[in-house]
Design a protein around this nucleic acid. Structure first.
Lengths: 161, 161
DNA sequence: GTAATTGCAAAGGATTTGCAACAGT
DNA sequence: ACTGTTGCAAATCCTTTGCAATTAC
């Protein structure tokens, strides 16, 4: 059992919210995984442990976890969200996603983060958060001969504008 | 009427697809707007012109427009997609989005793009596309006293890990 | 003419919400 | 005790799909 559950309990108390077994179970699943879990992933992991937690409760709990700052929500364009805990890794990190097999690699780039925060300020914005995702073909898919998608019009727009 | 419709017609012919008034109408709406349109935006714009185009046709047409490379699809995390034509602007550009009023500012950063493509290759990926969005508070919202969202736990994770 | 598109309505998938029963504090 | 949570099912929202009528080529 992850020691980080303590942090979640503390957050709940700070907010005056009840600490329930369902909330702890959902947090437990996310804290114990090193990946990016969908609500469905969380649900089946919970079923595996014998706990029966309603899907609605999972949705309500991940919302709290995200607000607490312990978990990050991602949308990799698959039509649903994924959740990742922020322990044992750089709090700020970016994602490299295989467009074919959806394998995810994380990396950090402080210079890039500095650059984009500067860019925000240049335009009068106060930066809050960002989303930096690179989609490409991972080594494995390249080796299997998967090709990048079609490029569209044969003649680039620039030449005709 | 936008002259860029020609490009779309050409793409359709190249692909052996029929050029229909509905497809031209949808393209027309997107090509005539400088913003980021949702399917609902497109639908109401079409209603305004008297044309009655089914929502399904709009979805089917934007899909083709995206494939053609004339239009880009965006997901700003609002729960639905937005579409933007790529004329009269740098084909590759990033978005700065107000977390409060959803105002969007576009900017380009060739250095950053170079940097992230390099980053992909460093990890064995062949870069295909990326998504770089900065969320923050725009000048107007700052002036109205809107504050950034709560930060979660009072004590940062790093100090307890 | 033939094959593809259109429009409508139904289906689909993820997420949310209403509400009665129940559990934390 | 009081307030907030849980779980279920119904509802919602965006998007996709089946199919008969229609249109482009």
């Amino acid at each position: 059992m992850s020691p980080y559950i303590q942090l979640f309990r503390r957050y709940l108390r700070e907010q005056g919210l009840p600490v329930t077994p369902q909330r702890e179970a959902v947090a437990q699943v996310i804290f114990s995984s090193s990946g990016h879990l969908s609500v469905e992933d969380i649900e089946s992991a919970l079923r595996g442990t014998g706990a029966r937690t309603g899907k609605a409760t999972i949705y309500r709990t991940v919302e709290i976890l995200v607000r607490s700052g312990l978990v990050e929500e991602h949308d990799f364009g698959e039509g649903f969200k994924r959740y990742e805990h922020l322990f044992g890794q750089t709090p700020v990190h970016e994602h490299l996603i295989c467009a074919n097999c959806h394998h995810v690699v994380e990396f950090q780039s402080p210079e890039m983060v500095r650059g984009l925060e500067q860019m925000a300020r240049t335009h009068g914005f106060v930066p809050i958060r960002h989303r930096l995702e690179i989609y490409g073909l991972c080594g494995t898919c390249q080796a299997q001969g998967v090709l990048p998608p079609d490029e569209g019009l044969t003649c680039p727009v620039e030449l005709l504008a």
